[in-house]
Amino acid sequence: MHNLLPNSAKTGEAEMGLGIRPSAYFYLGRCDPDYGDQVVGYERPSTDESLVSPFDTGGLWHGHVVTTPPLAQSTLKTFVARHSHGVPAFALAFQQWGNAEYNGSSKDYTAGQQPVKAAVPNIDLSSPRAEPRWWTWEGRIAHGSTAMHTLQPVKVFMTQDDFESYEPWVRDDVFLPTHEKKRHLSHLRAILVPTGNEDPAQAMNLWLEGQTQW
């Protein structure tokens, strides 16, 4: 379904400036409750069509992730390319950083505890402006790629009200053949975790805390 959801204008601006193909974006190993009301957990892609960076690339472009010393916007494309890891090659860098910053346990990372050091030396977490976009690892998968078409959701966390709105949207508005809509909704019901009044991102993080991220 990610191919059917257009990126925002701000995301498109960042992609153009950073030389990133139009993509879907995912945080690795944790959800940030400040972004999104419905949360989907996916299997980790196994193809090198996917890329991972140890910070939020859109946040970098729009000035929400700050480097020390500050980088000129004209250099950010090169900076992102230098700090983009392929899949599955990124896993070693993620593991080494996680083991160093969280003593081998990914639970505190998932819960949002800020590390002492980001994985990129230019990002100084001692800054009072530091926030999760500075150190949360981001995955991106280009729209139309084989990786996007084979991406498998394993958990969906949403409130009952949101599900009741989502189901008629798929049924009435999404441009898919009827049999595809039925298959999609059947799979959704199988992996749906209703959260009641609980924040879906927090519910997902509680589940992720029981999974090993590196």
Rank of each mutant, 00 (worst) to 15 (best):
N3E: 13
N3M: 04
L5P: 02
A9T: 05
K10Y: 09
T11K: 00
T11P: 00
E13K: 07
E15V: 03
E15G: 00
G17F: 04
G19F: 00
R21L: 03
P22K: 03
S23N: 01
S23V: 04
S23A: 06
S23W: 01
A24C: 08
A24Y: 06
F26E: 01
P33M: 02
G36Y: 03
G36W: 02
Q38K: 10
V39N: 06
Y42W: 07
E43V: 10
R44P: 08
D48R: 14
E49Q: 09
E49Y: 07
S50Y: 11
S50N: 06
L51H: 02
S53D: 01
P54C: 05
P54Y: 04
F55H: 11
D56C: 14
D56V: 03
W61Q: 02
H62F: 07
G63S: 06
G63D: 03
V66C: 09
T67N: 02
P69D: 03
P70M: 08
P70N: 06
P70F: 03
A72Q: 10
A72S: 09
Q73I: 10
Q73V: 12
F79M: 03
A81L: 00
A81V: 01
H83P: 09
V87I: 12
A89P: 08
A91E: 15
F94P: 10
F94G: 15
Q96V: 15
G98W: 05
N99G: 09
N103R: 07
N103M: 08
G104R: 04
S106D: 11
K107A: 11
D108L: 15
Y109W: 11
T110P: 08
G112M: 09
Q113M: 14
Q114I: 00
P115D: 07
A118C: 09
A119K: 11
A119H: 11
I123G: 08
I123D: 10
D124C: 07
L125D: 04
S126F: 11
S127W: 09
S127F: 11
P128Y: 06
P128F: 05
P128W: 03
R129Y: 10
A130L: 11
E131K: 14
R133G: 12
R133N: 10
W134P: 07
W135Y: 13
E138F: 00
R140P: 02
I141V: 15
S145R: 01
T146W: 15
T146D: 15
H149I: 11
H149C: 14
T150S: 15
V154Y: 13
K155E: 14
T159N: 12
Q160G: 01
D161T: 10
S165A: 14
Y166H: 11
E167D: 15
E167V: 14
E167W: 13
P168T: 00
W169T: 11
D172M: 15
D173E: 12
V174L: 14
F175D: 13
K181H: 02
K181Y: 07
L185R: 03
L185T: 05
S186P: 03
S186G: 06
R189P: 01
R189Y: 02
A190R: 08
A190N: 07
L192Q: 04
L192I: 09
L192G: 06
V193A: 02
V193M: 03
P194F: 03
T195G: 05
G196C: 00
N197K: 01
E198R: 13
E198D: 11
P200A: 01
P200H: 05
A203I: 07
L206M: 14
W207K: 12
E209T: 12
G210E: 12
G210T: 09
T212R: 09
W214Q: 06
